[in-house]
Every structure is written in C-alpha cells, then in structure tokens.
Nucleic acid binder design. Structure first.
Lengths: 360, 360
DNA sequence: ACTATAATAGAGACCGGTCTCAATACCAAA
DNA sequence: TTTGGTATTGAGACCGGTCTCTATTATAGT
C-alpha cells in the first residue's frame, strides 16, 4: 500500500503554494526564479516543492511564455551516416544552449516533410532546421518563416528562400573530385547519385530537385567539359535511392561495352554498392575501375583498397546550423547568412589510371 | 507592403469564432470535430478558418486533454547504425498510429539520460522508449512509471523494472557465435566490447552495468567453459567506447605473445577497428585471425573477407517497442511483456581454423 | 519621527485549446 | 396545441504555468 502504481496527479505550483502557505504567484516566482521573493518564502516553497516532488509542466510554461526551448529538425534519413553525424552536431550545440531537439524523418518526400513542418510548428518549436527534400516546393518553409519561426537550412539550399544555410561548396567539391580522375587520364567517368527522378538518365539541371545534387552535377560537368570529354552527361545516373535500384543502376552501367572507367559516388551508401557490384562483376578497384565517393564513412578507410573520398564536415554542418538558429532565436535580425564549410578530398587507394590508356 | 516578414500572431479559435459569428465553443467543436454542430455552422467556421489560415495550437490542446500525441525516445548514440535503424523502425510504427517522436541522445551516460527523462516528462510525452545506459540506476525510470507515463525498454533490460521490453537473446547469440569459433578449433578467443568500466579487463559480471553486454559475456563464457577453455575471461576487454581506445585495446590484445586467434566484436564499430588493427599489424583475416561481429552493418558484407556477423533485427526491435508502447498508451493494463526477437548468425568469410592448430 | 523608495506579497488575467452544463431550438408524437 | 426528447448553442471553468498590477511591508534618508 505504498503508492505503487499510483499514477497520482503530479504536483502543480498551486499545490506547492498551498503546502507552503503562500500565494500561487509567490510560489511561482520562487520556483521559476524570476521576480523577487524573500529568502524565507523561497525556502518554504522549495522545501514544499521537494516534499511534493514538484516538476514544472514545460507545456504550460511554453503556453504562457511562447518559448518552448525546443528546436525542430527535419532530415531526409536518419540511417544515412551523414545525417546521423549532423544530428549529433546539432544536438550537441543545442544542448550547450539548453535547447532540446525534436527530430523528424522526411524520408526525402515532400509530403512527409510538409506534414513534419506542420507538426513542429503546431508544437511551437522555437526554430526549425531543415534539410529540404526538394528546392522547388518551399511554401511550407516560407510560411514557417511568416509565422515568425526562425529557419535554417542544413546541407541543402533552396534558391529564393532567404534564410540562413549551413552547406558545403558541392560544386567545387565535385569538380575537384572529377578533376582528380581526369588527371589520372580517365575520359569515361560516371556520376551516380540518389535523387528522386522520373528517369535514371540525366537530361538537364531542371530535372534535379535536390540543391546538393544539382551543384555536384554542375561541378562534375564543369570539370568534364573543361577537359573536353565528349558528352559528359551520358554517364550520369539518378535515382539510386535504395540498395536494390542502386545495384541495378551500377550493374547496368558497368556491363555496357563502353563502360566508364571511373565512378563518382554521391554518397557512401552508393559507394558501398559500387564496391559490391565491382566485386560481383570481377572488376578490380582501382586497376579496372576507379572510385571516388562523397562522405568519409568509417568503412571507407578500412576496406581494400581504401576509398578516396570527399569528406564532408557533417558534424560541424549540424553544429553551425544549430548555432545560427539559436542566434536567430536570440533575436538577431540580420541578413541571411551562408555558412559554407570546407570539404576535404582525401586521396586513398581507389583511384588509378584507367586500363588500356588512351582507349575510348 | 504585402505582409512580408509580418510574424503576425497566428489565428486562434476565438479569432475564427469571431470571424464566423459563432461562439468560441461552437467554433472549437467544428474545428476539433467533437460534440455536435449544425452543418451550417460547420461550414461557416471551416470557411473562416481557411480564410484566416487557422492552425490549432497543439500545445494548448495537450494542456487541455493531457495527451500530446508524442512519444519520447532516449537512445545511447544516434551515430551507431544499430540505433539509427531502431529509431527508423520505431518512428515508422509511431507514424502509423499518428504519434510523433522526440529523440534524445544519452551519450551512454546516466546523468544525461536522467536529464533527458526529466525533459521529456516535462514535455508531457504520452510514453517513453528508453535504451538505458545502465541497469543499476533506474530511479528516474521508475518514477516516470510512477507518474503514469508508460515505458518500454529497447534492446536493454533493467532487472527489477517491471515494464515491457523489446530485446534479443544476447546470451544465446553470443554463445552461438563463440561456439562457431570453438568448433573451428579456436581456444584463445577474445571478446571486445564498448561499455563503461573502471578497468579494461574483466573481473565479474557485477562490473558490467549494461544488460546487453552482461548477457553476451555470460553467453561467451558459457560456451567457453563448456568447451573447457582455460581462464575464458582473460581475453575479455571492456571500455572500447571510441575509436581511439578501441584501437589501443585491440592493438594491445593482438600484440601479446599468446594473442587470441579469434575475436568476437560486440558491435560493428569495434569490428571495424579490429579490421583496421589487423591490417595495421599485418594479420590476415581469417587465416591468422578470425572475427565474428555483432550487427550486420552494411559494410560487413562488402569488405574482403566479408565478416561473419550476428545480425540483430534492429528495425523490428524499434518497431515492436513502439507497438507495445502505443498499446500501453491505449490503456491496456496487463502484465509486462518481453518481446524477444531472434538474431541470425550469418556465416561469411571471416572465420577459419586458427594457425598452427593445437598450439596454445 | 516621517516620508521616500525599494522590496515583497497576493489577486487575477492570460496563453489557446477542451469540455461541462444549462439554455434554447427543433422535431415528431399525442 | 402541448409534450417529450434530441440536436445545437453559448457561457464559462479548466489545464498549469507566467506576468502585470496593486497593496503591503521593510529599509533608508534627513
């Protein structure tokens, strides 16, 4: 009979006030640490609170103050190590400033993203960090802003949306990675990426709704045309969104008679599938196929050959996004800022000159 | 002058009611879809709501009803693929039932975990899913329950805490994995795990605060003693919590004169470090060193040799945890349930008989 | 001692929903 | 037309905090 399974109603300020024989307002002040309270009252109240095991109802506080101490985060896919690390960074930063984080997965679909924004807005988060699934459909983001909810874009820009962004220079990164391959005499270079697309093959930039992917392809094409490669777009493949389709796309690419001699993989999951496909087809990396991948996933340095990667500062990206957001929440009303972090091209063992040099 | 940057106060039921010329109560009923409203009033209200771009304040609703439609989740480390996948599973399940998820990282430290519980409770989540950092310190979990907040444990039990759990049979899984090595004639088998511990070496089960790890070590020892291995505990190593210390521990283990001929890695991150260390020391897997790892991380099937693993149904673990929790929230008051999912020992290429058979 | 000023206490409105309850409107049956 | 019953409506309390505003008390200054 020891109050087990009690589920007794938690104590409120009113309860504490009654127990301490002071007014609700006085108790609230003592508990909330605002206004002015005599030390005698404070003592009584704190003691009563302890006795009743009082815990403030954060919701009620939020209602009254308008501030929730929470930031909402919407990313594409938790299981992608890039986002895992970014979330880590942003949580760490948020925690430092006493904010906590509500996380939502958009599954890279705009409908889910829109719903998530609505939910988070309804929960009255103090700010929003979003990695938008598409750069086109941004009405929901715009009216978050219109409602006065600060917004920071993570990893992906949305042209025309005048908000803070934390990104890397994808175009430059892709250009450099491609140039590395070109310098090794590759002339048939593929770019495989995971973005929603009606068709697997590449027609024009407008086709691509993901800012990050579009920039990278621009960089890839830039390096390619600069080097005078013929039809540089012909080896671009979109839509490698999951293991199965990625595998199909890559296998198809590598079994063609004029198969590419090098592949740029747009993320570590795709790189993994390239590895798997090469193994399956008996293609030796880097002797018969060179590989450069985005994201320095932990396994890339351990496999043989170790994979040459474009390392992205994902943790910092998240951290900076949170930092900027919290600054905004603090009230700084300045021009939108673009926090552009540097990528690092880490040369390892997965690139070499193509077989049968000069052939194409 | 087009209401840009307006941050205008969002419309409330009262606003809508006024605009529709009905009482606040009537508008609330029309909007909330409860009580009874004439279709005439309903129409007027909905129209007014549309015009004013009304969005319900979820917080106010929660305050009034006591239900938040949110479940709180506390895990050890987002960056661990195991948890990434579990979170995915539990989010998917929650979404199906219209719940959303607040996620917190405990960093595997009890203090952070306690703080996280407090925050989530204060935010009045409808239920809690926790992967407790330790099985000892469970007061915070107990009083979540005492406050009437349903609780489900994910992946890790806490003996004495009578709540639903979604786990695997770690003891059995570890026993089977160890036996696989024993059958291949290994007699010096190491177990490397990432749990907080004062000392790296193993003394007794009491030393280990993580339910999962303790069970696995029990299984490991069980198989070892059954096979009559001498001092089976001498190759157990604790505290491999991050890359650096894991690397140190493994290197130390493998450079000893009577080094183990096989290693069981308690998670994929450790397996990766074993891989790295073996490469560094010039030890060939599996010829000179066999490896079995927990968790079927994506890279394990791609590296050479592919790693033999104990695959855990992490997605389902998360999904089931959420399913049970939501059932509890629904009000079913039954005995605590233990949902025990099966692991799968996937034999690949990283195990073989030890070199110089018979030596020890 | 007697005001001027500051510190503290209490009452009650407010945030934006839900929900109870009493009052009114509407309908069919008698 | 009167009655009984149901559908709809509006007023206002409530959730648990914050916060403003007034009343009271304490402290200081001359």
């Amino acid at each position: 009979m020891h109050e087990r399974f009690a589920a007794k109603r938690p104590a409120t300020v009113a309860d504490v006030a009654a127990a301490a024989n002071v007014s609700k307002a006085a108790a609230a002040r003592a508990l909330g640490g605002y206004g002015s309270v005599s030390s005698a009252v404070k003592l009584k109240v704190l003691e009563a609170a302890r006795r009743l095991d009082y815990r403030p109802n954060e919701l009620a506080r939020t209602m009254a103050t308008g501030r929730s101490g929470t930031i909402g985060v919407i990313i594409g896919d938790i299981e992608n190590p890039f986002f895992g690390s970014a979330v880590r960074g942003l949580s760490d930063c948020a925690a430092q400033s006493g904010f906590d984080v509500i996380l939502s997965n958009s599954d890279e679909t705009i409908a889910t993203e829109r719903a998530a924004v609505a939910v988070l807005l309804a929960k009255r988060v103090d700010g929003l960090i979003v990695a938008p699934a598409t750069m086109h459909d941004k009405a929901h983001l715009e009216d978050a802003r219109a409602q006065g909810c600060p917004l920071v874009l993570l990893d992906r820009e949305a042209p025309g949306l005048l908000v803070d962004v934390a990104i890397v220079n994808n175009q430059e990164a892709a250009r450099d990675a491609t140039q590395l391959l070109i310098l090794a005499d590759h002339r048939r270079i593929a770019y495989v990426t995971a973005t929603a697309a009606a068709d697997v093959s590449y027609e024009s930039p407008e086709q691509i709704a993901l800012a990050t992917v579009r920039s990278r392809i621009t960089g890839f094409l830039e390096a390619s045309t600069l080097a005078g490669l013929p039809e540089p777009g012909r080896y671009i493949r979109l839509g490698a969104n999951n293991t199965a389709t990625a595998q199909a796309i890559i296998a198809d690419l590598l079994s063609a008679p004029d198969r590419p001699t090098a592949i740029v993989a747009s993320d570590s999951k795709i790189a993994l599938e390239v590895f798997r496909a090469a193994k399956g087809l008996g293609l030796a990396i880097p002797r018969q196929l060179s590989l450069v991948a985005f994201d320095d996933a932990d396994w890339t340095s351990v496999v043989s050959p170790a994979v040459t990667v474009v390392a992205q500062p994902s943790y910092q990206l998240g951290f900076e996004a949170a930092r900027m957001l919290i600054e905004r929440i603090g009230g700084t009303r300045t021009e939108p800022r673009r926090c552009i972090l540097a990528t690092t091209l880490i040369k390892r063992e997965s690139t070499a000159s193509p077989p049968m040099r000069g052939d194409f």
